[in-house]
Simulated assay, not measured.
Amino acid sequence: MIILLTGDDTTLIEQKIQYILKKNNLKKYSKTDQLKEAYFKCLTQSLIDSVTATVLQVSPKDLKLNTSSIAKLQRSQNLLFIVCENFDGRTKLGQALKPYLLSEFTLPSNWSLGEIKQAIDYYAEQFGLNLSYEVKNYLLLALNNNFPLLRSGLETLALLSLSPSLELTKEIIPSVHATAIDLKEMILRRRREEISTYVTKLKAFTNEQAILASLSTQFTILMQTAIGSSQNLNDSAIAKLAEIKNPKRLYFLRKELTQISIEQLIWLNQQIKDTQFQLRYHTCDLSARLMLMCCW
């Protein structure tokens, strides 16, 4: 049986997989990124379990399933979850897999404040929390679109207090945005010896993709500010280009730009994107990649 799950919200995808496993009286699954291995497991009868489950984590470009084999996989009693960030439903393979698309689990775009506010209100109501304006405002800017961390953090807060103070909230849900600023500073000042210890500390309360997403936002703003300044745009135009709400922030960004060129910022942003891709589809040492970025 084929179940296609798409999107980049890995937490919701995992929850859906666990829900389906429970419905089928299964407690575990095997995971692979190899198409042939997943195909073999789905079509092979287990000697131990009557039904097995396999999760195939695959990138869109590597999803090259033979359309003639789809019917065989669907007839199997074993479960085959195909997890892919996205797929093109217009292709022959896309059309063949479309009937098995269970749901799309896509995170809101970076800094979509309206959607983040809705999520805060939704989870607060779910856990019976009475959040003050200052706590909501902090959460709105602290986590970007890291909904898994938001949900788990609010769930922990609810166990401690149903009307948490700002101080308690900051202790339980540290600001990923703030950590990215610290990492950006380390990279700009080439303090590579501090990165490994700092990343280990960050990973205690957030995931690697969230760290990179926030770091990407910081360096994108810096790069766009540099591009706008090089074209002699006025402050309002630069702020609009870099999506900065308060143009006064440009004063501090320009101070940072005195130590790095546009070309170097473009290189750094590409390194961040490459690292995000490697973490999504392969194994990658985040600390090592960040230390490499200090060599701009």
Score class of each variant (00 low, 15 high):
residue 269 N to M: 00
residue 261 S to G: 12
residue 244 I to D: 10
residue 255 K to S: 09
residue 250 L to G: 05
residue 262 I to W: 02
residue 265 L to I: 10
residue 269 N to H: 00
residue 250 L to T: 05
residue 260 I to G: 05
residue 248 K to S: 15
residue 244 I to R: 07
residue 266 I to S: 00
residue 268 L to P: 00
residue 262 I to M: 04
residue 241 L to M: 10
residue 255 K to V: 09
residue 241 L to K: 06
residue 248 K to R: 15
residue 250 L to Q: 06
residue 252 F to I: 11
residue 251 Y to D: 14
residue 255 K to A: 12
residue 268 L to N: 00
residue 260 I to E: 03
residue 256 E to N: 10
residue 246 N to V: 14
residue 252 F to C: 07
residue 244 I to Q: 09
residue 263 E to W: 03
residue 255 K to I: 09
residue 259 Q to Y: 07
residue 263 E to K: 11
residue 260 I to H: 06
residue 259 Q to T: 13
residue 247 P to H: 07
residue 243 E to A: 12
residue 249 R to N: 15
residue 246 N to M: 12
residue 246 N to S: 14
residue 269 N to Q: 01
residue 263 E to Q: 13
residue 266 I to F: 01
residue 254 R to D: 01
residue 249 R to S: 15
residue 267 W to D: 02
residue 263 E to C: 05
residue 260 I to S: 05
residue 257 L to C: 12
residue 249 R to P: 11
residue 267 W to R: 04
residue 257 L to E: 05
residue 245 K to Q: 15
residue 236 S to T: 11
residue 253 L to I: 07
residue 258 T to Y: 03
residue 244 I to K: 11
residue 259 Q to L: 11
residue 238 I to Y: 00
residue 257 L to Y: 06
residue 267 W to G: 01
residue 236 S to A: 11
residue 253 L to Y: 10
residue 261 S to K: 13
residue 269 N to F: 00
residue 239 A to C: 13
residue 256 E to R: 04
residue 262 I to C: 03
residue 261 S to T: 15
residue 241 L to W: 01
residue 247 P to Y: 04
residue 237 A to Q: 12
residue 259 Q to G: 08
residue 255 K to Y: 07
residue 257 L to H: 10
residue 249 R to G: 11
residue 256 E to Q: 12
residue 256 E to A: 07
residue 267 W to I: 06
residue 249 R to M: 15
residue 259 Q to N: 11
residue 257 L to I: 11
residue 255 K to P: 06
residue 241 L to R: 08
residue 237 A to G: 06
residue 255 K to T: 11
residue 260 I to Y: 05
residue 236 S to V: 10
residue 266 I to Y: 01
residue 240 K to N: 08
residue 248 K to E: 15
residue 263 E to I: 10
residue 236 S to R: 11
residue 264 Q to W: 07
residue 265 L to H: 04
residue 251 Y to A: 14
residue 249 R to A: 15
residue 249 R to Q: 15
residue 262 I to R: 03
residue 261 S to Q: 12
residue 255 K to E: 12
residue 267 W to V: 03
residue 242 A to I: 05
residue 244 I to A: 10
residue 251 Y to I: 15
residue 242 A to E: 04
residue 247 P to N: 08
residue 260 I to A: 07
residue 251 Y to R: 14
residue 243 E to F: 10
residue 237 A to P: 02
residue 261 S to I: 09
residue 259 Q to I: 09
residue 259 Q to C: 07
residue 247 P to I: 07
residue 260 I to W: 03
residue 237 A to N: 08
residue 238 I to A: 00
residue 239 A to D: 07
residue 239 A to P: 07
residue 247 P to Q: 07
residue 268 L to Y: 00
residue 253 L to R: 02
residue 260 I to D: 04
residue 240 K to M: 05
residue 252 F to L: 14
residue 254 R to Q: 06
residue 257 L to P: 08
residue 253 L to F: 10
residue 242 A to M: 04
residue 266 I to Q: 02
residue 252 F to T: 13
residue 264 Q to Y: 08
residue 253 L to G: 00
residue 265 L to D: 03
residue 253 L to H: 06
residue 267 W to C: 01
residue 262 I to P: 01
residue 255 K to Q: 13
residue 267 W to L: 09
residue 246 N to T: 14
residue 238 I to F: 01
residue 251 Y to M: 13
residue 238 I to R: 00
residue 239 A to G: 12
residue 253 L to T: 01
